[in-house]
Simulated assay, not measured.
Amino acid sequence: MTTISSGGEPAHATADREVVISRVIGAPRELVFAAFTEVRHLSRWWGPDGFTTATRAFQFRVGGEWDFVMRGPDGTDYPEWITWREIVPPERIALLHGESRDDPNAFESVLTFEPAGEQTRIVMHTVFPTKEVRDEAVEKYHAIEGGEQTLHNLAAYVAELASKGMES
């Protein structure tokens, strides 16, 4: 049996364009999902270490957009844009992420939230339009380290929420 990617091509055809990052987070998936889908939470943890996130627009629904700016530790602003393609609470989110709505190098990500007892395993599976775009994201923008740091920040934030007894 051949696995087909969301783009309709055999999954092995995308292997050189993929980045997959995962982490087990010590909280129920409903709380982890809420932290990932509500703008009041996102601004508290989104991005690699030392980055801040300022939202310009946010509509969490299929076809909705998140328009935001990430500011790096050196003061550089990075405009970002996400459109939500699929939302299956609290299991899955599919999105398209780029610098703007018309970014030719925008990439697709699928996030899954899997229960692991009282914890949640989150998997971010990203497919870039080309191997070169993936390689640039990994080498120039440190996408793997940044993704791992972002999930670490999510885990720390959710732990803080859980310790305060907040469900979302």
Rank of each mutant, 00 (worst) to 15 (best):
Ala137Met: 07
Pro79Leu: 02
Leu154His: 04
Ser100Leu: 13
Asp102Gln: 07
Glu86Tyr: 03
Thr37Lys: 01
Ser109Cys: 10
Arg23His: 08
Ala54Tyr: 09
Ile144Gln: 12
Thr53His: 08
Asp74Phe: 11
Gly72Glu: 08
Arg134Thr: 07
Ser43Met: 02
Lys140Val: 11
Val127Ala: 00
Thr2Ile: 12
Trp45Asp: 00
Glu108Arg: 14
Glu18Ser: 06
Ile122Pro: 05
Pro115Tyr: 12
Thr112Leu: 06
Trp81Cys: 01
Leu111Pro: 00
Ser5Asn: 14
Gly64Phe: 03
Val20Trp: 06
Thr2Trp: 03
Asp103Gly: 03
Thr83Tyr: 07
Thr76Cys: 14
Val123Trp: 14
Phe33Met: 05
Phe68Ile: 12
Phe51Gln: 10
Ala13Thr: 12
Val158Ala: 11
Thr52Gly: 04
His12Gly: 05
Ser22Met: 05
Val123Lys: 08
Asp103Gln: 03
Leu161Lys: 02
Ile122Tyr: 07
Pro89Ala: 06
Ser100Glu: 14
Ile93Trp: 00
Glu148Arg: 13
Leu95Lys: 00
Pro104Asn: 14
Thr120His: 01
Thr55Asn: 03
Thr14Ser: 13
Glu86Asp: 11
Thr126Gly: 11
Leu96Trp: 01
Glu80Phe: 04
Thr83Ala: 12
Ile21Thr: 02
Val158Cys: 02
Val158Met: 03
Asn105Leu: 11
Glu9Arg: 04
Ser43Asp: 06
Phe113Trp: 10
Ser43Ala: 15
Tyr157Glu: 01
Leu111Lys: 00
Glu160Ile: 05
Ala155Val: 01
Gln149Phe: 09
Glu136Tyr: 06
Ser43Arg: 05
Gly146Gln: 07
Phe51Met: 11
Val69Pro: 08
Arg61Asn: 13
Glu118Trp: 04
Ala116Val: 13
Asn153Ile: 02
Thr52Phe: 01
Arg61Pro: 11
Gly117Tyr: 15
Glu38Met: 05
Ile4Gln: 03
Asp49Tyr: 09
Ala11Gly: 01
Glu118Phe: 08
Pro115Leu: 14
Pro129Lys: 05
Glu65Ser: 12
Arg85Ile: 09
Pro104Ile: 14
Phe60Cys: 12
Thr37Val: 06
Gly26Arg: 08
Arg71Ile: 06
Pro73Glu: 15
Gln119Asn: 15
Phe33Asp: 00
Gly47Glu: 01
Thr150Pro: 06
Asp103Cys: 04
Gly72Lys: 12
Arg29Ala: 07
Val127Tyr: 00
Gly75Lys: 02
Glu86Arg: 15
Thr3Ala: 14
Thr53Ala: 14
Arg121Ala: 03
Tyr141His: 10
Arg17Cys: 02
Asp49Val: 12
Lys140Pro: 01
Arg23Trp: 02
Gly98Arg: 01
Asp16Phe: 07
Lys164Phe: 09
Asn153Met: 05
Phe113Asn: 10
Ala159Met: 06
Ile82Thr: 14
Glu167Ile: 07
Val127His: 00
Ala11Val: 05
Gly64Lys: 08
Asp49Thr: 15
Val62Arg: 12
Lys131Tyr: 11
Asn153Ser: 08
Ala13Asn: 10
Val69Phe: 07
Gly147Gln: 02
